[in-house]
């Protein structure tokens, strides 16, 4: 199976590094750590699991190609994916400011037309824009079936996938025949969430994504990474959504600490009036 995995790197706010907004109402990412979008790391892990025998993760059965739309300095994210086992990388040179989900999806369609993968495997959302749309858009542009928010994937030979989608209130099971587009949710990297046709029933992976060994990091420097121009792939691509300003969320008024369960109940009744 040949799998194309689009990956993005994101500026990640956490509890220690707060996002700032500049005086001209733009997002100021100084001090934030650039990380691969977590869902894309999960998608790479899923692609690796689908193209191997879980008992021998050194040998690939098929090919995993990672692709990124982004600037040169983001190439380290592609190298990191190569180090964990992806075979090749493509970087579409673009400024983040010229991209939106639709431009990325149109670019991906052009790449798929050339690369002809069996599966496009994406993250369900990027945690900077929180958009959750590229998979669905590219599925439509390709005329392929989509299975979004996958928490489990079982492959049936190289022809079909059984996908358990995490939906509100439960799990929706779909069977898609390839070629198809699948986006992955958080629990796709649980030990038994993904099973390729080459992996024994019941095989359990370590929880989470695999780490690259030092040797693999060195070897990844020699794996192919080609660069293309966005304007060659999608001439005249324009964004369909424009951001004019950003603001910090309204702060919540500081609360209080109560000393006992009795005091809590009393406050909820008398002060907050929610009981």
């Amino acid at each position: 199976m040949k799998i194309l995995v689009p990956i993005k790197r994101v500026a990640d706010p956490d509890n220690a590094n707060k996002l700032k907004i500049s005086s001209d109402a733009k997002v100021d990412t100084t001090g934030l750590e650039w990380k691969p979008n977590p869902f894309d790391e999960y998608a790479v892990e899923t692609a690796l699991r689908l193209t191997e025998n879980g008992a021998n993760t050194k040998a690939r059965v098929g090919e995993v190609v990672v692709v990124m739309f982004g600037p040169k300095e983001a190439e380290s994210t592609l190298r990191a994916a190569l180090a964990t086992g992806a075979d090749r990388a493509i970087r579409i040179d673009a400024n983040d400011a010229d991209l939106d989900g639709d431009v990325v999806a149109q670019g991906l369609k052009a790449i798929v037309d050339k690369e002809k993968p069996d599966l496009v495997l994406l993250g369900k959302q990027t945690v900077d824009s929180d958009s959750n749309q590229v998979a669905q858009l590219v599925a439509e542009y390709l005329g392929w079936p989509q299975a979004t928010f996958a928490a489990t994937i079982r492959s049936e030979g190289d022809k079909a996938l059984h996908v358990g989608r995490e939906v509100d209130g439960g799990t929706l099971h779909l069977k898609v025949t390839l070629p198809a587009v699948v986006s992955v949710d958080l629990r796709i990297v649980a030990p038994k969430s993904v099973r390729s046709a080459h992996t024994a029933e019941g095989h359990a992976y370590p929880d989470g994504v695999r780490f690259a060994a030092l040797m693999a990091i060195m070897a990844a420097k020699k794996k192919p990474l080609v660069e293309e121009k966005l304007s060659d792939l999608v001439p005249g691509a324009t964004r369909k959504i424009e951001y004019t300003s950003f603001a910090l969320p309204p702060a919540r008024a500081a609360g209080i600490k109560v000393k006992s369960v009795q005091e809590l109940v009393q406050k909820l009744k008398a002060e907050a009036k929610v009981l």
Partner: peptide, 19 residues
Amino acid sequence: TYKRPMYAGNAFGTCAVTT
């Protein structure tokens, strides 16, 4: 124009659809 939470709710973007 739309307001939407981004960066896990750490920023709100104001945006418009151009189509």
